[in-house]
Amino acid sequence: MSSPESVLSIHSLHKNYGKICAVDSLSLEIKKGSVFGLLGPNGSGKSTTLGMVMDVVVPSSGSFTWFGETPNHQQRKRIGAILEKPNFYPKFSATKNLQLACKIKEVGEERIAQVLEQVGLSARAGYSFHTFSLGMKQRLAIASALLAQPEVLILDEPTNGLDPQGIAEIRQLIIDIAQSGKTIILASHLLDEVQKVCTEIAVLRQGKLIYTGKVNEGFGDEVMLEIASDDITALIQVMKVHPTYLSHRLHKGHIEVKCAKGAKSSELSKYLASHNIFPSHMAEHKKNLEQQFMEILSQNA
């Protein structure tokens, strides 16, 4: 059974569209207070999964619990969610749209001014939704999701289609919300976004869960080093015998070496110097999520 700390617990959830399997026996556990990234390329089943836990999509089999209880519509009032795109009545003003959401969520209308303030839309409260820019629509959707002061916020591709400024604004908003202690579930195909915002991730590919873990731990602990030297051949020979050496790749004018956990560039430069090799360039970089992500995807292909 799921612990009281569990916000969302998914048990072998399955969704078929005809012969296509969109979500394949997915199991996940999302804990209170985490900022959970659901990562995967387009069509990997992220939105379908979120649709199922929000009762918009009917699962083919499997089950899930919210807050340790069987799902019902009352719980959804404690969840703020934006799936795919902001949905509002185009001819209603921002305020009218939020009034309707208040009626559904059974929240007092005094929250409207507060959430509009929070997302910076107070000045546009009386304007029709269809006059809004995409960034404003997205912010209004976030405002609506925040109306009931939800414990959980679900965001599906929240920066999709926005310009750089809009992206920055929405990300800052998400980070602010995360810092207020809410649990956030963020689906995205933008790894960079997940890396900036999330504490935990799950990677989906063709409806299957292929990785789950903490963002900081990374998917492996190898150290990547970029080393250049006048004599590349000698450099490779010497590197190959180093105890932390795992593999290397030859690039134009430099090599990229993959070393085991614990390898340090300071220690390595001493080691190379002791073999009479003086690197003209040496840079250590943590593998970024994008590389790790691509690796995971190709490993599971």
């Binding site: 929000m54 009762d55 918009v56 019902n72 519509h73 009352q74 959804r76 009032k77 969610a81 799936l83 795109k85 949905n87 509002f88 009545y89 185009p90 959401a101 559904i104 969520k105 059974e106 609506s144 009931a148």
Partner: peptide, 21 residues
């Protein structure tokens, strides 16, 4: 039909209305 075309049937359910409601 406008609930469908504006995605509001979906949104109402996400916001906490049950399908039966």
């Amino acid at each position: 039909s406008s609930e469908y075309s504006y995605g509001m049937m979906k949104q109402n359910v996400i916001d906490g209305l049950s399908r039966a409601e």
